[in-house]
Amino acid sequence: MAVGISRENIEGPYDDKIVLEQGLSPINGPHQGAWVQAEDGSDWFFHFQDKRAYGRIVHLQPMDWENDWPVMGIDADGDGIGEPVLTYRKPVPGKFPIANPAIHDEFNKRVLGVQWQWNANWKPEWYSLGERPDHLRLFARVDRHYQTQQHLWNVPSLLLQKLPAEEFVVDTAIDVRNMRPGDATGLLIYGLRYQWIGIKHHAHGKELALAFCGNTETNCTEQIVTSLPFNGDQIFLRMTVTKGAQVQFAFSGDNLQFTPIGPNFAASEGRWVGARMGLFALSTAGTNAPETSFVDVDYFRVSPISN
């Protein structure tokens, strides 16, 4: 990362100097940051690392000054250019409880957790947290993109959140008894390539489906990797993510025995964001009246991978 300094005039001319580089560290980039100052006067620097499917990971680096130039990170080789560090003392001394960003949601509050992001400007008629206690009700929205282009790109009513770690497991339970022919719902990993596991309702009944789009958002029609007949009222879905953003889906009818389905899927970043995960309910038939069809999601839980 280079910075520029003008000692005479804000309009320049400027001197420039590289003050932060990857060097021998594993932190690629680093770039697009901000200088901040703690209450004790110490200087620190925020920047992000591009982790592809895992998104842009924020780092906080120590920052010192050398000959009026900022040096971010640690200048281990003495060349005047800092390198990022993975661990360092906290900016503010003392013992503080560990605080993790919101990830899980039991859907037992009046509002969605702050971790959730709709795929585009949202509308209140897409969902309800009050129709059924301790459940998220997703109404099966009729979307022209899904109807005509047969993929989820540009569908606004996808409920998504960022990936929280390199490795983790997601579990969710969806009540599908109020689905209608033309509806689809599921657990989704979403990016420039995406895959989901869930239920599709056809005229002849419901099926468990694993679907994906594997190219780009301008050149893909959603394909069914595999499908199985499904006759139950509730489906338990699991997504296991391992290093390298490798995704394996599984399903269960009783929440006890889970069956993996399909090969591993390599998640990819989205456009200017990492991959995201979440839920959806859509329809290719009928109307957008809320009472037409819907699914009820019991929970969305994220946990470490068991050894």
Rank of each mutant, 00 (worst) to 15 (best):
T216I: 14
G198D: 03
V176Q: 02
H47P: 01
S6M: 06
P91C: 04
W272Q: 10
A102G: 05
L228I: 09
T284N: 10
E217K: 12
S6L: 07
R193W: 01
D171S: 07
F265A: 00
N67I: 04
P181I: 01
R7T: 13
V169Y: 05
A38E: 12
M277R: 15
T185M: 09
I27D: 01
S227F: 11
G286H: 03
W153C: 04
F236Y: 15
V247H: 07
S157K: 03
V302E: 02
R276P: 00
Q149C: 09
I189T: 11
I235R: 01
A53R: 01
G12N: 07
R238W: 05
Q150G: 08
I18E: 13
Y88F: 08
H104Y: 06
V3Q: 08
S283L: 05
E166H: 12
A140W: 00
Q234F: 09
N67L: 08
Q22D: 06
Q223P: 02
D233A: 08
G270W: 00
R7F: 10
H201I: 04
F251D: 00
G182A: 06
G41I: 02
R52F: 05
L160H: 03
F251L: 02
V19F: 14
P30G: 11
L24D: 09
T148Q: 14
E269L: 11
